[in-house]
Design a protein around this nucleic acid. Structure first.
Lengths: 176, 176
DNA sequence: TATTGTTATACTCTATAACTATA
DNA sequence: TATAGTTATAGAGTATAACAATA
């Protein structure tokens, strides 16, 4: 849509002085990160919606394959959601046969969550989707630039003390 | 918190095969973008909260300084929010004396929104905050790497057809 | 007494759709 | 009839806190 063409009235008295030369933010790396990050997250959410998964659900599957048997409280903490919200969240995946709750024999207050075979199979398709997403996002870069970008982002993530593999978008339950 | 130390029971029967070598996603550029983007947006929201501004409010101020006199509908579209939500959103900024509604003489259905002197002054402080934020996020990079990162992200943003200066986080009203 | 999992509830944010005034 | 701005409202998503079972 052309915004200039459909502008009815308004710019007759530009009483605020024009912003000199450059607008300031909007072109900085931090802003681009936020903008592109939101965009990438949105596109990824759209892609995995075809697998009937939300970003948070995908995050849980990946957590479970990395170390199975974690308790619900631990997993809720890792995903950044309160335990009360984790319950219906896990319910959905359990009813679909993707994860399994097993009572812990030593401490019967705890559940140990495990991936089912079906869940493991879905995780495979999830990885294919993630790979396609990666290629989509970086299609304008050469292989060298792609590696360069990954290296720079990895360094920033480490310096900002972000936990690998988990991001704040997991806190929400929304598909998009 | 050390998650390993507080793990009660669970990992006695790792019935799912270990994930071979690399975990797959989580280390890709697309995932890092989403993770770092959410982090950067969160930090920025915290910073500008000291100016009593949300990211969406900051976005509106920047839109208004770039071309004043736009109608509410245009601005709502640019920010990605429905007109009904824009009304109380603009109300808040108007009551604080940061923006001004002026009736359009040619089409009296329209309001032309303008930045007040006070709004312009706050925008100045906002730019200082954005600069500090930029430096915080990129503090682990050399000036050359910083420029490199900005160039790579700019290229991706253009290829993904993102509108400069606007990002989807503006759709929400939440301070954080 | 403390902790895990669960449920109940109140609250916030949101989009949809009516309404008005102008065109 | 169509559009800008506004208001009303119902729905979704959320966190807080109470609860039962186990330690």
């Amino acid at each position: 849509m052309d915004r200039e063409a459909t502008r009815p009235g308004g710019d007759k008295r530009p009483d605020t002085p024009p912003p000199a030369g450059r607008p300031g933010p909007g072109g900085g790396a931090a802003f681009l990160l936020a903008q592109l990050g939101a965009h990438a997250a949105e596109r990824f959410a759209q892609r995995i919606a075809e697998l009937d998964l939300t970003p948070a659900q995908a995050g849980l599957l990946r957590l479970l394959v990395q170390n199975p048997g974690r308790s619900q409280r631990e997993l809720a903490d890792a995903l950044g959601m309160p335990p009360s919200r984790f319950v219906p969240f896990a319910d959905g995946l359990e009813q679909r046969g993707l994860i399994e709750r097993r009572r812990n024999a030593e401490d019967r207050r705890l559940y140990a969550l495990h991936l089912t075979d079906q869940g493991l199979a879905l995780l495979g398709r999830l990885r294919d989707t993630a790979l396609a997403h990666e290629q989509d996002v970086t299609q304008s870069l050469t292989p060298e630039e792609h590696a360069q970008l990954t290296a720079l982002l990895t360094r920033i993530a480490a310096q900002q003390q972000l936990t690998p593999g988990v991001h704040p978008g997991y806190r929400t339950l929304r598909g998009r």
